[in-house]
Each structure stands twice: as structure tokens, then as C-alpha cells.
Design a protein around this nucleic acid. Structure first.
Length: 480
RNA sequence: UCCUCCUUAGCUCAGUUGGUUAGAGCACCUGACUGUUAAUCAGGGGGUCCUUGGUUCAAGUCCAAGAGGGGGAGCCA
């Protein structure tokens, strides 16, 4: 007999049918004549209640079943006599697949701290919170591919090992097969990378953007969705050493087309979650409400998770330039009363988290897209404006998490790009292939990068990025 | 990397001005109970007080160093 998933068993109102289910025991409640087992198989946040008559036939088996054990149960679906669920399974045949010693199994039917669960990342997936998060993570992955596919974008696999260290997006992890205790040396005692696996020094990628641009200048509209690696010693709830990034890159798009796409994509993804992950979102909404009730009133969210997602879905993002944002911040009472740790008093400063949060959470109270930043604080490949001081950059700022997207229209003029590469001391000889796209059939084009885990933070309402990726990689931590 | 807080039972946490045998709730084990929803009730077992060193008649408590973790900042996605 074929196993029925619990998500389907719970949906069925065709009572009296004999079905087989398998899963992991969440709780067992036993009394003299009847035993209730809450069974979960990860197909839904909801458990199927297995009802077992306590008789000599089952007594021995029931003794082997504790929280965490895996079982298979054959029985008839019946309409529940108790409240709390519609269908339940009246058990006819019960089998233990794998026991879980209750003295050793760390998950109890009670609330655990997220910090404790991080230490048992191999088991935390079995909890309601994490199974909900990872079902949503899957749904978001799928929705991203669906969004771009429906628009005719081409998914491009950019390389994970890169031979260029000129991407400029952060510190990199080196990839080598040389013996680090005794590497070959050149005459001047430097490590001789010509003897390394690739015949040169290589690293894990920090961005697929440059390769994405190459593809866009052939396929028009492309996106990458892959892992990226940053060896920065960042210890925050918003940074990972290994994270997933979505990087669309579009030929013939200017910065306004770019912003339109970013806004449409974020709203599409939020709507997809609301339409397809409702039960998991309801659970996480309740979880966050419980968590918030521990906090003082003035630190609590103004909106619940679901309300916030609906708000994003239904409201246009605010668009303004860096200079306009600078004026708002400079003239704000907050600034004039000296309440910013970093006062806003000189055009050209890079905005701090506190400034971004003020704009998003206090001033506009909605997502904000900032454009046209001073060129000094942005990357070399961004298109320079005619004013000679700003570039066509755009950052999408979200409540709670700050910068969720960073992007720009790209500089398509060969001479301007080359000049900028020289000004910023980027090794020109390593960028020959990138420069050639501007030499042969260059076109206006744009793109952006979305940090997938930052999106996940927003959609799930979790507050630590280590809780929205199954096995987080952070400084001093590569367990599991 | 900087600032700050934390580390006591399997988990979440109390532990007073340093003072006898370190506590609670949940979990676990035993028993009771005809339908429970993190069931309930009664009883029981369970401790490297993060590590090392120091002060003291006496340290879970005070001091120093180290390790691990949380929150905030920087860098960014």
C-alpha cells in the first residue's frame, strides 16, 4: 500500500477509507484505554492525530514510541470525536520505524530558544517553526524562477570559482589545491600560483554580476540565482559568509525599468507567499506576536507579519534621489536635535543604518528606493550621470531589514568605464573580457542583486539570518 | 573588528550583603485516569554552577584571562 502524505490525509473528507501514513511523532498522550499520537511528516505544519486503542496487541509497540520516533500507521480515516482537527486516523496496524531514546533526544514538546536550536541544526528542521521556514524558502525559490521564466528571462549559471579578484564586492575565500604548509615558491619567495590547480590564484565568487552582464549582452534578459561567498568578519543578524543571491541583468533597461522590475518582483514574491504558504505564515505570525508580547510596548511591531506582507503587496514604493533623501535627513528634527549617532551635515556621506531606518520606518513608513548616489561611495561599473558627481545606482530599503536590493544602470561607455577602472585602481588587465562588451556592440543595460536570505527574513518575520538558511556559515562556525 | 550583555539540571530560568545538603517549571521514569490537543493528578531520578587562575576561614556569588553565545555598530546582500 502506498503512503499518503499527511497534508492530503487531512484534506480528505472521504471518511472510512483505509490509508497508510508515515512520519515523526510530535507528542504521545496515553490513558488507560486510548492513546493519541500527533504525527507530522513535514508535508504541512499540521499534525495528523493517530488514535490507538490500548490493548495487549499495541501495548508493547506503544512503549517504544516517544517524541521524535518515526512510525508507520495503517488505519481508517474518521471524523474526529474531539475538537481541534477534522480528520484523524483510527489505527489498525502500527509499526515503529526508528525509536528516539527520550533520555537523549533533545527536542521536547515545548518551546525552545532559537539559540539552542541553532546548535542542533540537524534536528531543528523537525520543529514547527523551522519546517514552516524551509517550506516557505522552497516556495520562494520556486516563485523566483517562475517570475523570471514567465517574463521570458533566461537563467544563467555563473561560475562559483572565479579567477578574477576585481569584483570589488568584498573579501574572498581562496580556492587552492596547493599544500598550504609548503607551497611552491617563485624566485622572489612569493607563492607560485602557476603550479596551482587552475594555474592561477582563484577564489569563491562574491557575485555573479559581471558574468550576468556578459550573458545579458547576448540573451537580453537573464538572471542568476546561486550561492555567493564573502570572507568578511561580519557578526550581525543580517550577514552570512555563504548566502544565495538573485541577480537579474537586462539589456535595453534604464534605471527606471530596473526599479519597475525590482518592485514588481518583490510584490510578486510576497503575493506568492500569501497565496501559497498561508498556514505556515499564520503560524509564523502567531509566533512573532508571542515573541513581541515579551517586549515593551514601544518596541513592538506596528503591524503583524501578515499585515506587513499585505501592506508591501498593495503599496507603491517611494522613489527619491540620494540628494532628496539627504535634504530630508538633514532638515529632520531628529537630525537637528542631534539624535543621530552620525549627524547628517555634509553631502556625499554614505547613509548609515540609522538614516535608512529613519527614512523607511519614520518618514515614509513604506519601502523606499534611493537613486543617484555620489559616485565615490558606489562601484566602478555604475553609469555616471552628466553632473559628473553621481551615478545611476538604486538601493531598495525595506522596514526591519534595511537594504534588500542594490543595483544600478551599468556604464556602457567604454572610455568612461576604463577611466573609472583606472581611477579606482582596479587591475585593468584582469577586466579585459568585461571591457570588450563595451567595445563590441555595447547597449544600455541594468541589473540588481537581491539577497535571498534577506528576502526570507522579511517574508518569515524572523529576525536572525541564521534562522532562514538550513545550515548557516558565519565567522567561526561551519558546523554540519 | 568595536561596544555591550549573557553562560547554573536535557530545556527555560531563579539563586538575597560571599556562609550548612544549589532550587522551580517543563522534559524524563513509575503509577492513576474512557477522547486528549504542549492533557491532567501523585511520586521519583537527574548538577564539571562554561574553563583556568586568583582573593578569602569560606566562591554559583568577588577579581583576571580565555572559550562560546545574544543584542547593537561597521562592511554589505
Amino acid at each position: 500500500m502506498r503512503r499518503v502524505k499527511i497534508v492530503d490525509a487531512l484534506k480528505s473528507e472521504d471518511y472510512g477509507k483505509e490509508i497508510l501514513v508515515m512520519g515523526w511523532v510530535r507528542t504521545k498522550r496515553i490513558s488507560k484505554n486510548v492513546c493519541f499520537i500527533a504525527l507530522n511528516d513535514g508535508s504541512t505544519i499540521n499534525n495528523l492525530q493517530i488514535v490507538v486503542d490500548v490493548n495487549p496487541e499495541f501495548e508493547n509497540i506503544l512503549g517504544k514510541i516517544n517524541t521524535g520516533a518515526s512510525i508507520s500507521a495503517l488505519g481508517n480515516t474518521v471524523e474526529s470525536m474531539g475538537s481541534g482537527q477534522n480528520a484523524e486516523l483510527h489505527c489498525l496496524k502500527l509499526e515503529v520505524l526508528g525509536q528516539a531514546n527520550p533520555d537523549e533526544y533533545p527536542l521536547q514538546p515545548k518551546r525552545h530558544s532559537l539559540e539552542f536550536l541553532r546548535e542542533i541544526a540537524h534536528l531543528r528542521i523537525r520543529t514547527n517553526t523551522f519546517s514552516a521556514i524551509f517550506r516557505i524558502r522552497h516556495a520562494m525559490t520556486f516563485a523566483i524562477h517562475k517570475f523570471f521564466n514567465d517574463k521570458g528571462f533566461c537563467n544563467v549559471h555563473s561560475p562559483i570559482i572565479t579567477g578574477s579578484d576585481a569584483e570589488g564586492a568584498g573579501e574572498m575565500f581562496q580556492v587552492t589545491t596547493l599544500d598550504i604548509n609548503n607551497p611552491p615558491r617563485t624566485k622572489d619567495m612569493k607563492v607560485d600560483y602557476s603550479q596551482d590547480f587552475f594555474g592561477k590564484q582563484t577564489h569563491l565568487t562574491v557575485s555573479g554580476q559581471l558574468e550576468g552582464e556578459l550573458a545579458a549582452l547576448a540573451l537580453s534578459e537573464v538572471y542568476t540565482f546561486g550561492p555567493t561567498f564573502r570572507a568578511e568578519n561580519s557578526n550581525t543578524a543580517r550577514h552570512l559568509a555563504e548566502f544565495w543571491m538573485i541577480e537579474p541583468e537586462m539589456a535595453f533597461y534604464d534605471i527606471n525599468d530596473n526599479m519597475d522590475l525590482a518592485e514588481e518582483m518583490l510584490q510578486y514574491l510576497v503575493k506568492y507567499a500569501l497565496d501559497n504558504c498561508r498556514e505556515d505564515l499564520d503560524f509564523l505570525t502567531k509566533r512573532r506576536l508571542d515573541e513581541q508580547s515579551q517586549k515593551p510596548q514601544n518596541e513592538r511591531d506596528a503591524m503583524s507579519l501578515i499585515e506587513r506582507l499585505e501592506f508591501i503587496m498593495n503599496n507603491k514604493f517611494e522613489r527619491l534621489t540620494y540628494t532628496q533623501a539627504y535634504e530630508i535627513l538633514k532638515d529632520s528634527k531628529h537630525n537637528q536635535k542631534g539624535k543621530f549617532s552620525y549627524p547628517v551635515e555634509k553631502w556625499g556621506i554614505d547613509f548609515q543604518s540609522e538614516h535608512e531606518r529613519y527614512l523607511v520606518e519614520k518618514h515614509f513608513q513604506k519601502p523606499v528606493i534611493l537613486t543617484d548616489y555620489p559616485k565615490e561611495i558606489k562601484a566602478f561599473y555604475m553609469k555616471q550621470n552628466d553632473d559628473g558627481t553621481t551615478v545611476r545606482a538604486m538601493d531598495v530599503l525595506f522596514p526591519q531589514i534595511g537594504e534588500i536590493i542594490g543595483g544600478s544602470q551599468r556604464e556602457e561607455n567604454y572610455d568612461k568605464l576604463l577611466l573609472r577602472i583606472k581611477e579606482m585602481n582596479i587591475p585593468e588587465e584582469e577586466m579585459w573580457w568585461f571591457l570588450e562588451t563595451r567595445k563590441f556592440g555595447t547597449v544600455p543595460h541594468s541589473g540588481y542583486g537581491l539577497g535571498f536570505e534577506r528576502l526570507m527574513l522579511f517574508v518569515t518575520g524572523m529576525s536572525n539570518i541564521r534562522d532562514v538558511i538550513p545550515f548557516p556559515r558565519t565567522p567561526k562556525n561551519a558546523e554540519f
